[in-house]
Design a protein around this nucleic acid. Structure first.
Lengths: 136, 136
DNA sequence: AAGTGGTAGTCTCAAAAAGAGACCAGCACT
DNA sequence: AGTGCTGGTCTCTTTTTGAGACTACCACTT
């Protein structure tokens, strides 16, 4: 992580944007962040960043997602412009989901978070264990 | 965004970590990502990245969070090691919440996502409007 | 000819999570 | 003696999510 990236000017701009001038309730950044912070959204974006997938492929790839939530999460991602849905008139018809340019550009910073999670999941698990031990 | 950051090697490592070798269900990255992708988690981390806050201050800063969810989200963030909770024996006692080192290190990549959201929220809103118009 | 499986979903009902608001104890100030 | 501030918890209702049955169409097998 290049610490130059996180300079003060950028920080201040981020705070201004996210607080909307001190008001956390009506914040444009919240609108976007909450659209991609659902339980399955980021996971599906990560999968589709690899390559396009069909509906059934995604269902098998993420076995613990219900068909209902897969449908809905893909719908929401499509609505927000991250995902493109294309129906092929085969028999039976197949549907392919892929990232749009917007989706790919969003995946870039998301990937930073994924990398952080990869590097730090041990620390988080330890913190959890220590906290639970202290509570008992 | 420096495109060098997102090189192929990093990508492959991320995929490997997040898929856990093809299994999306038992994925350590999911464990971490889902801990910070709750509706309020990222917002509170963003607030605490600015400076420590007291319970009541956070409640006033985010007026549309219920007291119940504020308590619980702060508890979860504390459990995962992102947030430190300190009680001051004043009368009435006050409680201060602040980011730990782990929390600050997680905020760095989170900030990238916030910056992206700031830059692209217009595009997302336009995509939404276009999608809704096409459906009608 | 009838059954089997694969396509992408929808529909219904139960379970879990989140929101709304009352309530608590203790102290300061008026 | 009443009001307000502190940081919560408790209960009830509403929303979100999960589990699983059901759909229609076609290809392939038996």
């Amino acid at each position: 992580m290049d610490s130059k990236i996180f300079n003060l000017k950028a920080k201040l701009e981020v705070y201004k944007a996210m607080t909307n001038g001190g008001n956390f309730a009506d914040c444009p950044v919240r609108d976007v962040i909450q659209g991609i912070s659902g339980k399955w959204s980021s996971l599906l974006v990560m999968a589709l960043a690899e390559r396009p997938y069909r509906f059934g492929e995604l269902r098998r790839l993420v076995p613990d997602i219900s068909q209902r939530m897969l449908t809905q999460t893909l719908y929401d991602l499509q609505r927000d412009g991250y995902v493109h849905r294309e129906v092929f008139p085969t028999k039976p018809p197949s549907v392919e989901y892929s990232l749009t340019d917007l989706g790919r550009s969003m995946f870039a910073p998301l990937q930073m978070l994924v990398q952080w999670a990869e590097l730090n999941h041990d620390a988080v698990r330890e913190a959890r264990a220590a906290f639970d031990a202290a509570q008992a």
